[in-house]
Design a protein around this nucleic acid. Structure first.
Lengths: 141, 141
DNA sequence: CGGGATCCTTACGGATACTG
DNA sequence: CAGTATCCGTAAGGATCCCG
């Protein structure tokens, strides 16, 4: 039925080559037809989603950091949003929170081993964005 | 003033080593203290942000695809959201929309050169998510 | 087939003020 | 210093119905 005409045009739309899929979808967790929290892509996405998330992560990549230091380095980020973002990262097991003894109270935030795994992603976000900008620059296509 | 005590504890919190920064922040566009649309990271983030965005991109990575085909492959995605997502991608110059002549109307969506640049990012999202899950699996730290 | 037009609800980001 | 407590406006996602 489908093959009666066999035009190359129909094939281009219908036929999806599965050759390169293994690169994009290495295993069964990627073969999903909707956003599943268990899909690795969604896990990574959750880590960097939310405004300011990548900037907070970038600062923590430099090493442990206190709440106030983070605020100082990201001056226009309000305490509420920073608390939200850090709370999410802690809940995801990407950041650990250490209360330092003494007074006034100091809290040190640092990346966990899982959080460290995000470094290549931040680097790829940067390089990808750069290449996209470069590809758009010549002409709008 | 700062150096009077010189405890290693203070250094760990205050001193951010600039050694590895070049990897994370290659040029001036990355040295921002707030989310700037011109920052490459924000550009890449914009491309994959919004629910279903990565799934739509994944499908388009296989090759051009019509509106209905996208709906068929992502059954629980409503037409409105798909229209939104595609519209954003087109507005960002990552996807091109071709109206095919004939009846009924067919529209073919395909990645532009800029959109193709997102492939490594999708792959990194997957591998990063996998490694994060693996790092969290042994123990919660 | 490929959307557009509405409407609704919730989540998110931000501002401001206050506390242990 | 390191948050918490409120309040608010907007925008995003989804459902439903309709049109060319």
């Amino acid at each position: 039925m489908v093959g009666t005409h066999g035009t190359s045009e129909a094939k281009r739309l219908d036929g999806h080559q599965t050759e390169t899929d293994a690169e994009l979808i290495p295993d069964a967790r990627g073969r999903t037809d909707k956003p599943e929290p268990t899909c690795p892509v969604e896990v990574a996405l959750a880590a960097i989603s939310g405004r300011w998330a990548t900037l907070v992560l970038r600062e923590l990549m430099h090493g442990p950091c206190s709440f106030g230091e983070l605020r100082a380095r990201l001056p226009t980020l309000t305490a509420k949003v920073l608390t939200d973002r850090l709370g999410e990262l802690v809940a995801q097991g990407l950041v650990a929170k250490d209360r330092l003894p003494g007074f006034p109270v100091r809290t040190s935030y640092r990346l966990t081993d899982a959080g460290m795994e995000l470094r290549p992603l931040l680097i790829t976000l940067y390089s990808t964005g750069s290449r996209v900008l470069a590809a758009l620059a010549p002409r709008d296509e």
